[in-house]
């Protein structure tokens, strides 16, 4: 996964927010990664830690929430979180199961010091 370019995009968005709101420092960044985003949180934290030096986010904590993958049974609508791999629906026994989740990576909010 291209964690470095995601980290760069995060910094660019933070900088645009700084110009708009005029804060001094970012304390923390709340990030939501969709279940299908493919983001590796450790790699993203590492990349962000490297490139944030010298910016207003130099000391910022990156809080990544990864959404769990959802499985939905198409015939009966039963849904469950995570549980990878093939398998049948525990309610109706169907194997016609769909994987659901977002591929987006969103900056939810920033905690800033004015």
């Amino acid at each position: 996964m291209h964690e470095l370019s995601i980290a760069q995009e995060i910094l660019d968005i933070i900088e645009a927010q700084r110009l708009r709101h005029g804060f001094e420092r970012v304390e923390s960044v709340r990030l939501r990664a969709g279940a299908l985003s493919g983001v590796n949180p450790e790699a993203l934290e590492f990349a962000f830690g490297v490139i944030r030096e010298g910016t207003c986010a130099a000391g910022a904590d990156l809080r990544i929430e990864t959404e769990p993958m959802k499985l939905v049974c198409r015939p009966c609508g039963y849904s469950a979180i995570d549980c990878h791999g093939p398998g049948a629906c525990p309610r109706c026994g169907s194997v016609d199961i769909q994987i659901d989740g977002s591929a987006g990576v969103e900056i939810v909010s920033l905690e800033v010091e004015q």
Partner: peptide, 14 residues
């Protein structure tokens, strides 16, 4: 300290 709502997808520019 204050909170700023951002709600921006990092893929927006692309």
């Amino acid at each position: 300290m204050s909170r700023i709502k951002v709600e921006k997808n990092v893929y927006n520019r692309n």
